[in-house]
């Protein structure tokens, strides 16, 4: 039996409530849907290791990242997440090129790209390499963040509303890129969205939160 792409069953304690998430999927692209404020980002943070769940376990592609019962809790830098944050979090003191290559030195070397240029080409940001993040538009910032996550040779991708607050054309751009990543690379992808149409277009499986 092949390992599940995602095998997650966690309880996250927040001051005001508890967030429970259960995902067990063979499909490599899973959508996490639900209205805002339900804790979708908290689930992604827990998978990336930025937030410690109260109990439960997290395994992606057969690798256990967290298991409260067994005392397993990998550090964020050891989890191999390609995390595209909703607020992108590009490093303001670095150029686009330096942002892209930030995680390359830590990667396992299994990046699907020959180098930053090839990835920038795919994402359509090759002409922006020498700019600073503050000189980019919203769509360019998102594409840079996706490229940065891909270039760190991730073992899985976490995409937190990558189309939020973009106009329709930019939105279509991002969706096409996600489809291309899904089809070209055998990467488990967890895609957070509150847009049903988007989710139906992309995901093999969707989980309501």
């Amino acid at each position: 039996m092949t390992a599940l792409a995602f095998d997650i069953d966690i309880v996250i304690a927040r001051p005001d409530r508890q967030i429970e998430a259960r995902i067990a999927s063979q499909d490599s692209l899973v959508a996490l849907v639900g209205p805002s404020g339900r804790g979708k980002t908290s689930v992604l943070d827990a998978i990336a290791g930025l937030l410690r769940p109260e109990r439960g376990h997290i395994a992606v592609g057969g690798t256990v990242l967290f298991d409260a019962a067994k005392g397993i809790d990998l550090r964020p830098e050891a989890r191999g997440a390609g995390y595209v944050f909703q607020d992108s979090r590009l490093f303001p003191h670095l150029s686009v090129e330096q942002n892209l290559s930030f995680g390359m030195r830590y990667g396992s070397g299994r990046t699907p790209f020959a180098g930053a240029e090839e990835c920038a080409e795919l994402l359509g940001i090759a002409h922006l390499l020498h700019r600073r993040p503050r000189e980019l538009s919203g769509g360019e910032i998102r594409r840079t963040a996706i490229a940065r996550a891909l270039l760190r040779a991730p073992r899985f991708l976490l995409l937190d509303e990558p189309t939020a607050s973009l106009d329709d054309a930019r939105r279509q751009d991002i969706l096409r890129i996600v489809e291309e990543i899904r089809d070209r690379f055998a990467l488990p992808i967890l895609y957070v969205s509150h847009d049903r149409a988007e989710v139906e277009r992309l995901a093999g499986m969707s989980v309501e939160l």
Binding site: L50, E77, F102, A149
Partner: peptide, 27 residues
């Protein structure tokens, strides 16, 4: 210094010292 940038650097594979050296200190 925005700690969200530091956690982004962690997810990209940088350990605590590298985050300090490459993100916190320059900022």
């Amino acid at each position: 210094v925005d700690t969200r940038l530091e956690s982004a650097a962690r997810t990209l594979g940088a350990g605590r010292w590298d985050v300090f050296r490459r993100i916190t200190l320059p900022l």
